[in-house]
C-alpha cells in the first residue's frame, strides 16, 4: 500500500475500455511527515477523494479488475481509503 496525497487529476478519452468513466487522481507518494518521496502516481478514484487528501493506494491489479468489472483490465493503482487528517 502506498501512502500518498492527492495533488491533481487527469482526463482521457482514448484509453483501455476499463478506464472509461473512471476518475483518475494524480497522487504524490509521501512519508509520514508529508514530504514527497517519488514521482506522481495516477490512481483510480472510485471514492472521490478531494484535492490534498491523504490517501492509501493499492497496487493490486485484481482489486481494480473488480472495480472496473473488466477481467482484462491492466490497471493496478487505486485509491482504497482516505486517511482521517485528525489522527
Amino acid at each position: 500500500m502506498i501512502l500518498a496525497r492527492v495533488e491533481g487529476h487527469a482526463t482521457t478519452t482514448v484509453s483501455h475500455p476499463s478506464l472509461v468513466g473512471q476518475k483518475i487522481a494524480l497522487c504524490t507518494p509521501i512519508d509520514e511527515k508529508g514530504r514527497r518521496v517519488g514521482f506522481p502516481i495516477a490512481a483510480l478514484d472510485p471514492i472521490g477523494s478531494g484535492l490534498y487528501a491523504k490517501v492509501f493506494i493499492t497496487t493490486d491489479g485484481r482489486f481494480s479488475q473488480s472495480t472496473t468489472g473488466d477481467s482484462a483490465s491492466p490497471i493496478r493503482n487505486e485509491i482504497i481509503g482516505i486517511i482521517d487528517s485528525k489522527s
Partner: peptide, 29 residues
Amino acid sequence: GSEATQPFGFPIPLDAINVAILDQIYFKP
C-alpha cells in the same frame, strides 16, 4: 508489472503497456 499482460489472452513477455492517452493534466503540488 504483470498487470501489463492482462489485456492479452495468451502468454506474452511484456511488463509495460500504455493504458491511456491523456487529454488534460491538472497538477498543483
